[in-house]
């Protein structure tokens, strides 16, 4: 086996890993925002009823308190986020890949797609919480200043809040990006040939250096990411 054959084999794994990384970001960054807005949703369909009932009785009961606090959209979204963040990514990959077939006799998804869907949902849930933290850390006064200047809600979000949120979430998002690089190795549980799998396959042939090569790949990948994140932070340092 020549050096170039090994490199070519590793390159296949490399492509899978890199593709999974970028496609996950492409899906999870916007989906995270949707989940974030879902968990911050204020819709409380029973609030008015509960308020009137409490006023009629002259006191709050457990039921009227629940009615005021019950926000179904937010509750459902928070429940999903809890499930996704609370269980191992590896189990989620297995369930998404094997679950539909075993439970409903649906045809299996292609391995890579199953992995990608799981990663997007999983990372979107983590991103959503980072977004929420970022949005809620912006002083209320910013929104109010926009309001008294006659801006619409979406103008306030896009023109006032968004860039401030982005600035604040760069460091925690950087953490997630780097974790994602390494989490991609989990897809081997459904036999998606990512780079470690490829490297490992040479151990049987008595070669260890391909495995080192894969480790170096991860190091270089995260080094590039770190540099990009630093750049983003510097670009955003013109305001405080």
């Amino acid at each position: 086996m020549t050096f170039w054959n090994v490199i070519l084999t590793l390159a296949q794994g490399l492509t899978n890993t890199t593709r999974l990384f970028f496609l996950t970001l492409l899906g999870a960054l916007p989906l995270g925002l949707v989940i974030c807005f879902g968990s911050m949703n204020h819709w409380a369909p029973f609030a008015r009823w509960a308020e009137r009932a409490a006023a009629r009785r002259g006191e709050e009961t457990a039921l009227t308190r629940f009615g005021k606090r019950c926000k179904p959209v937010s509750a459902v979204v928070k429940f999903i986020v809890w499930i996704v963040r609370g269980s191992p990514l590896m189990i989620q990959i297995l369930i998404v890949y094997y679950g539909p077939g075993l439970l409903f006799h649906w045809p299996l998804l292609p391995r890579f797609s199953a992995a990608l869907i799981t990663f997007i949902i999983n990372y979107a849930c983590y991103f959503s919480e980072i977004y929420r933290g970022g949005i809620q850390s912006i002083p209320k006064g910013q929104q109010e200043a926009g309001q008294v200047l006659g801006m619409t809600k979406s103008q306030i979000f896009f023109k006032v809040t968004l860039l401030q949120v982005v600035k604040r979430i760069v460091p925690p998002m950087g953490n997630e990006f780097i974790t994602l690089v390494k989490d991609t190795s989990l897809v081997r549980v459904i036999a998606v040939y990512e780079v470690i799998w490829m490297g490992e396959s040479f151990i049987k042939k008595g070669m260890i250096w391909p495995l080192f090569f894969t480790a170096v790949f991860y190091l270089v990948f995260t080094a590039v990411l770190t540099a990009l994140l630093d750049l983003a932070e510097r670009k955003l340092s013109y305001f405080k």
């Binding site: 002083p139 910013q142 401030q164």
Partner: peptide, 20 residues
Amino acid sequence: IRKKRLHFGLVFQNFNLFPQ
């Protein structure tokens, strides 16, 4: 309400300028 607000201007205690 958004239009009605424009009859009034408000200067806040903490300025609330947009930092960016």
